[in-house]
Design a protein around this nucleic acid. Structure first.
Length: 677
DNA sequence: TTTAGGG
DNA sequence: CCCTAAA
């Protein structure tokens, strides 16, 4: 407004002063790059070896014969040993890259019975792990099960749980008496052989992973870890949600991975609920280029969000549409279960079908047909184009999912809150109980919602304009982490691995609960989306990796959340008053309740706004920002470029003055002092 | 923790 | 958006 006026006085013709950038010495730590470079060779070499492994494992898919075992071990050995020497984390390699490439789930504490064919693999790992021991075979495998304390005092040599013992530790039959908490659960949709999960589960190597350590984690340790995490969180600034960013960051967008085949109007995703299961993250490809992998993931997610979603007027998707999933036929024995959403007033109609079976091997098998996304409210002008509406909806959905959903468990109409109990203990094993078992998708409400528009909690809210405002609350779902972290670890074959640090006590466990979301590559009906509840994932997160690599490879990008026009307006307003160097203030002033907008985000947005304003309208992308606002952006940018925002209120006043009088003369004043004078 | 900039 | 040197 005022700025505009000023601008009309000739500023449009001016070259906006290129703000003298503060001298920036080479900020990047060169040594880092050097280090990385130096590892490339080894990296690639290992990658290629891994590739070999892959081929071999594929060619000899069904069974790992002796020759195979002999062939690969050498490689694996080298890799693993090296890791042990150079970096504490130990991981288990996933040998079968086939179906597991995209999704691998590793039940954390307990494993499922392993097929005989897995012995060779396990053995090999056992051998490798226990490098100190020259012996091979199960005998040298240190059974973890039953040990209560050892885990913490663990020593370098990794102990791999022999497959033979799995059954004992298995979900269905594990002894609960010794205090061990059995958290692992495998939701095995045995209905379809095409099921990617199943295929993964069939692969012992994958399952085995090195959840080993985790397998012996008992309550005490869980508590320990939990406390630790808690204290860490306390350290964050309470008033601002910014502090939670780190955590949220980890949580933000990876819980949901959609398979390429998601059907429109349907979000079907077998889900690993919070039953203590932990899908294990794995290296999806042998590629030694983490970026590529990452890009792949992002691409898929985007693809997912591109799917159309019906705007639920009230009831949302009809149960029918959901149930029409391709797999329907395979689950004639479905015990219908109720899947409802929301506990806070959000619609929670029954929306899915879920087959629940009790398998012969004491596993509880669940087949959650689909989950409906929570209700969305979208308010757009009549003049909006269909295309825009679609995008709007996509954004809403994406935003919602990105904001986090958590899974709740309902049994006999009651919420099952104790995440640490086993299914057995909870009684989720009998056929009867399964029939009353339900999962709920609940928006997370940990954080105060962003009160921008309506009171409707946890939903995409209607606002004055056509933009959406997501109030997706904090999520408790934890994002998956890449467990193979440092470059030197990367080359390992697609593996699920759970790392732990038994010896490095001073190492901090990953701040986030590692859980995994795996993509399904399975062609048709696989639409697995996996989410894991933090509590259960808690035990899983223990990779003693250094901050650097952790951040660079484990952290998933936050979901993109384009600024709405109103947000831009608020930002412009704030900057006009506060200047461009006080982003924290801007945040506090205008985005204090927008958890997902950090001051860095605001700063970045401003940067792009300035850029946008400077380019031709045709070159602009995304939701168009009113020229009016862009003009203000330029004006403010110009102004503050000359008037360092060093004095707060004074400058604010100065701005007001300047804008009011809006004359080139005023703008030539070089600083607040001058203005004052 | 914030700021400031490059990626 | 991310990452991070600097302040």
């Amino acid at each position: 407004m005022v700025f505009k006026k000023r601008q009309s006085h000739g500023f449009n013709n001016l070259h906006f002063p290129s703000v003298p950038k503060a001298p920036r010495s080479a900020r990047r730590a060169f040594h880092k790059r050097i280090v990385e470079d130096s590892q490339i060779c080894a990296f690639e070499l290992l990658a290629s070896l891994a590739g070999k492994l892959l081929q071999e494992s594929e060619s000899s898919s069904a069974s790992s014969n002796a020759s195979d075992a002999n062939d690969r071990p050498a490689i694996s050995d080298g890799v693993v040993k090296r890791e042990q020497v150079e970096t504490k984390p130990v991981k288990t390699e996933c040998l079968d890259l086939g179906s597991c490439e995209e999704s691998i789930f590793l039940p954390d504490l307990n494993e499922i019975p392993l097929p005989a064919e897995s012995d060779a693999i396990l053995e090999r790992y056992s051998t490798v792990s226990n490098s100190d021991s020259s012996e091979k075979g199960n005998s040298d495998v240190k059974p973890i099960q039953g040990e209560k304390a050892p885990k913490l005092e663990g020593v370098p040599p990794v102990t791999v749980e022999p497959c033979d013992e799995k059954p004992e530790n298995g979900v269905g039959s594990q002894p609960l008496a010794d205090g061990m908490e059995t958290q692992g659960l495998i939701l095995d949709n045995a209905c379809s052989s095409k099921d990617p999960m199943k295929s993964c589960l069939r692969n012992p190597a994958l399952i085995h992973g090195n959840g080993v350590k985790l397998g012996i984690r008992d309550d005490d340790e869980n508590i320990f870890r939990f406390n630790k995490l808690s204290s860490r969180r306390k350290a964050f600034r309470p008033s601002s949600r910014i502090g939670d960013r780190r955590i949220r960051k980890l949580l933000s967008s990876k819980y949901w991975k959609a398979a390429p085949k998601l059907k429109d109007y349907e979000l079907t995703r077998p889900l690993f609920a919070d039953l203590g299961m932990k899908p294990l993250h794995h290296k999806r490809k042998l590629s030694c280029n983490p970026d590529k992998t990452q890009g792949d993931i992002l691409y898929k997610r985007r693809k997912f969000s591109d799917r159309s979603v019906v705007i639920a007027s009230d009831r949302g998707f009809s149960g029918e549409s959901v149930c029409n999933s391709p797999e329907k036929g395979t689950s004639g024995d479905n015990g219908s279960a109720v899947l409802c959403y929301g506990e806070n007033g959000i619609s929670s109609p029954v929306i899915g079908n879920q087959a629940q079976l009790r398998s012969k091997d004491s596993h509880v098998k669940l087949n959650i047909k689909s989950f409906k996304i929570p209700e969305l409210f979208i308010d757009v002008p009549e003049t909006l184009t269909v295309g825009s509406l679609k995008r709007t909806v996509v954004e809403a959905v994406t935003s919602l999912l990105g904001g986090g959903l958590r899974v709740g468990l309902v049994l006999h109409g009651k919420k099952v809150r104790d995440d640490n109990r086993t299914l057995l203990q909870t009684g989720i094993t009998s056929a009867e109980s399964l029939e009353t078992l339900g999962f709920t998708l609940e928006p997370n409400s940990v954080q105060a919602p962003v009160p921008l528009c309506s009171e409707e909690p946890h939903a995409i809210l209607p606002c004055e304009t056509s933009h959406l405002i997501s109030r997706s609350p904090e999520t408790t779902i934890v994002e998956s982490l890449k467990l193979i972290d440092s470059p030197r670890l990367a080359p390992s074959p697609p593996t699920n691995q759970v790392d732990y640090n038994s010896e490095t006590t001073d190492q901090e466990p990953l701040s986030s609960n590692a859980d995994i979301v795996a993509d399904n590559k399975s062609p048709s009906d696989s639409k697995a989306l996996v989410a894991v509840e933090p509590a259960s994932a808690e035990a899983l997160a223990v990779v003693p990796l250094n901050q650097k690599s952790r951040r660079s490879e484990n952290v998933q990008r936050r979901t993109r959340r384009p600024f709405s026009v109103s947000e831009v307006e608020a930002l412009v307003q704030a900057v006009e008053e506060l200047g461009t160097g006080r982003w924290r203030d801007v945040k506090l002033r205008s985005f204090d309740n927008a958890d997902h907008r950090t001051y860095v985000d605001l700063k970045d947005k401003w940067k792009t706004l300035v850029h946008t304003a400077q380019i031709a309208p045709q070159q602009r992308r995304g939701e168009p920002v009113p020229q009016k606002l862009l003009d203000r952006v330029l004006a403010a940018h110009s102004y503050w470029s000359q008037h360092q925002a060093k004095q707060h209120t004074k400058n604010a006043a100065a701005v007001a003055t300047a804008t009011a009088t809006a004359t080139p003369t005023v703008l030539q004043i070089t600083d607040g002092q001058a203005i004052e004078a």
